[in-house]
Amino acid sequence: MVEGTPTIFEWMGGAEALEKLTEDFYRRVLEDELLAPVFRRMTADHPKDVAVMLGEVFGGPKEYTDEHGGFARLLSKHRNRDIKPEQRERWVRLMLQAADAVGLPTDREFRSAFVAYLEWGSRGAMANSQRGAQPAMRESIKVWGWGEAPPVGE
């Protein structure tokens, strides 16, 4: 990354933007016939936990790793859930609708990086949710960057 290039976390508006995103997203999830059964038992703090995890993914504070159990906890939330392809696809679609609704940036560079993570992360979650899955163990959350499309002017 070029020195001075903001992280995706900074570009999207930080923790406040992620909390708005996850609040809107999980409201949509609980109204969705395909995903509501998967999430109906989530705790009241689940949207905030996911915002913290996404913050770390997008280059923000390592709070999820330091205070919430990191990658091991993330894996535990998906183990043996048997996520189906159509559920994964709906999850991505609702996340993108929530991103639009809460006003996340719409520039192509941000959206390219954001969608790439949603696709990559949701496919990993689906794979790791299958019974008998043997996910790779690592200590930390994957930090997602700009890839080949840094912000314009950088």
Results as ranks from 00 to 15, higher is better:
A113V: 02
S140G: 12
S122Q: 04
A125V: 15
V52F: 05
E19C: 04
T43F: 14
E19T: 04
F9A: 03
G132Q: 10
E154I: 00
D45G: 06
G70Q: 15
E10P: 01
R131P: 03
L96D: 06
D100M: 06
E16G: 09
R73T: 14
G4V: 01
K62E: 11
P61N: 12
V38A: 08
K84R: 14
A116Y: 12
V57Y: 08
A72D: 12
A136M: 14
L30C: 06
F39V: 12
R138A: 08
E63A: 12
D32S: 07
R138E: 07
D45N: 08
G147W: 14
V50D: 09
D45F: 13
A116M: 08
A133V: 09
A51N: 01
R88Y: 08
K48L: 03
E89F: 10
L75R: 14
G14I: 01
P105W: 11
N128L: 01
V52G: 02
T7A: 05
Y117V: 03
T22F: 13
V92R: 08
E56N: 08
A116S: 12
G145F: 09
S140F: 14
A36D: 02
L118Q: 14
P6L: 06
L18D: 03
P6I: 07
V57K: 04
A113L: 01
R138D: 04
R28L: 13
S129V: 03
V2H: 11
Q87S: 02
W146C: 00
K62A: 09
A127Y: 11
P6M: 08
W144R: 10
F71A: 13
Q97P: 02
L75W: 06
R108K: 09
A36I: 01
Q130T: 02
S140C: 05
H68T: 10
N128P: 00
G145N: 07
A72P: 00
W91C: 05
V2P: 00
Q87M: 07
F39P: 05
L30G: 11
W120F: 15
E148R: 15
G145S: 06
E10C: 00
A136S: 11
T7F: 07
R88V: 09
R73F: 13
G55N: 01
Y117R: 09
P37I: 14
T106N: 01
M53R: 12
H68L: 15
L94A: 04
A51Q: 00
R108Q: 05
L54Q: 04
V57W: 06
M137H: 15
V92K: 10
L21T: 05
T43G: 14
R111A: 09
P135T: 14
E31C: 07
W11C: 00
D49W: 09
L34V: 12
G153L: 14
G55C: 00
R73Q: 13
G59Q: 00
R138H: 10
R27A: 13
M12I: 05
K84N: 03
P85A: 11
G55Y: 03
D32F: 09
R28P: 00
R81L: 15
I8D: 03
V38F: 11
G4P: 02
P85M: 13
A17P: 02
G59R: 01
G103Y: 05
P61M: 08
F71S: 11
K62V: 01
F110I: 01
G147M: 11
D100A: 08
E16I: 03
R81H: 11
V92D: 06
A72Y: 09
E31G: 07
F110Q: 03
P85Q: 10
